[in-house]
Amino acid sequence: MSGRRREAPGLFSFSAAVGAGIMASYGVEERGCPHSLEFRVFFKDDKGEYISPLHDIPMYADAHKDVFNMVVEVPRWTNAKMEIGTKDPLNPIKQDVKKGKLRYVANVFPYKGYIWNYGAIPQTWEDPDHRDENTGCCGDNDPVDVCEIGSKVCSRGEVIQVKVLGTLALIDEGETDWKVIAINIEDPDAASYKNIDDVRRLKPGYLEATVDWFRRYKVPDGKPENKFAFNGEFKDKNFALDVIKTTHEFWKALIYKKKEGGEMNCTNATLSDSPFHLNQAAAKAIVDALPDCGPANPIPADVDKWFYYEKQ
């Protein structure tokens, strides 16, 4: 069973079962005050050494069973738009910023914040120079996003193991932005889910709500509705697995400098043959340069408002 343990202010550790009796452990160290521009969540391995959640956590938890690691960026029902800092050294989780202000997703009726545990599959990269043959659009320069549909509300920074069920192809401002649908392997009902049709059968309305959420979530910011490839239809498990494996190959080209990544930060602590590898002294200096963890700032009052918007 997975667990979360607080070790000290701003320090947490997670453990998760992977396969038969195998445990993978990760910890997080928070810096700065939550809901501030300086807030960061750095990751540590089971030795307490700093790692990048994007580059150092393996993509697979169990390759033989197609079980993947997922880094939880946003717990279900919350609004803060947290994400892996792809441009920052060690890629800590931080809150997205637009025009100098922290970003929160609006509650577009009838939804409250994110309607799944939202995160990313490590060691994947949607190459912005690669035009996808299915969508006709290039990648969004981020790892592959995951919408985890299980019953547990996860914690920010938790690393869980998921079974992939399918994917949705969001076209976000002209870029391909895959949204993988998955379920935590520790969910009590995980064995009942084998493909995307099982979600439609066992959680009626959830897939339709997912499309609706992604279509409309930027409208309160004054942007138009998002569009989708495949007329907003979900692709099945095998299609999703191909997407993940392809983006993993893109990531490998990036991390071994066979492909230029622009502003993407590739510093890592475990890939000794990567030109971006750094030692723990350098990693610790990156973390120590930020302020210690402090009390959370208040969330702006308008974050709790419900936004009413008639579907187009």
Rank of each mutant, 00 (worst) to 15 (best):
K311P: 06
V41A: 00
A8N: 08
V159H: 07
P58E: 07
V72C: 14
K47V: 02
K152E: 10
E29R: 15
C154F: 11
Y50V: 12
K44Y: 08
A24I: 07
K112F: 04
V243Y: 03
G136R: 09
A61W: 06
D221T: 00
E38N: 13
N297Q: 15
I149D: 03
L241I: 13
C154Q: 12
I160G: 05
D177T: 07
F239H: 15
S25I: 11
L165I: 03
E260S: 14
D304Q: 12
E310N: 07
E133G: 11
R76G: 05
F43E: 01
S155H: 14
E310V: 14
D288H: 06
T135H: 00
T246I: 05
E30A: 14
S272A: 04
G19D: 06
K235D: 03
F230N: 14
R103N: 09
D129F: 05
A24N: 15
V153H: 07
R31W: 11
K245G: 00
Y308E: 09
P204M: 11
D242C: 07
L254R: 15
E30P: 13
K284Q: 15
Y118A: 12
I84W: 03
G139C: 08
S272D: 00
A282E: 14
K245Y: 00
G32W: 13
A296L: 06
K252S: 10
H35F: 15
D189R: 04
K258G: 13
K112T: 05
D273K: 10
V67D: 01
E310D: 06
E73R: 01
C266L: 14
V199N: 06
N238V: 00
I57P: 01
I286C: 08
E126N: 12
M59K: 04
M59Q: 05
E186W: 04
G262F: 09
S36A: 10
K259G: 08
G85E: 06
K284R: 15
D177S: 04
N69P: 00
E126I: 04
N195W: 09
L290N: 07
D66S: 09
F234Y: 12
V303G: 04
V97L: 06
D187G: 13
I299R: 07
E175K: 13
D212K: 07
A269K: 13
M264W: 04
A281M: 06
A209G: 05
C154M: 13
P291K: 03
V97F: 03
G205E: 10
N107I: 09
A285F: 03
G19F: 08
A106V: 03
F68D: 04
W125F: 15
E158L: 04
N265R: 11
G232S: 03
K235G: 10
I181P: 07
I93K: 02
D88Y: 10
L168C: 09
A269R: 15
W125P: 04
S25Y: 02
G139K: 05
D62R: 10
R31K: 15
V164N: 10
A63H: 08
N268S: 02
G32K: 12
A240T: 09
D46F: 12
K94Q: 10
K252P: 09
K252W: 11
K257V: 09
Y104M: 13
L37C: 05
I286M: 08
Y206H: 11
A289Y: 11
R201A: 13
A282K: 12
R5S: 15
A253Y: 10
V287R: 00
S2M: 10
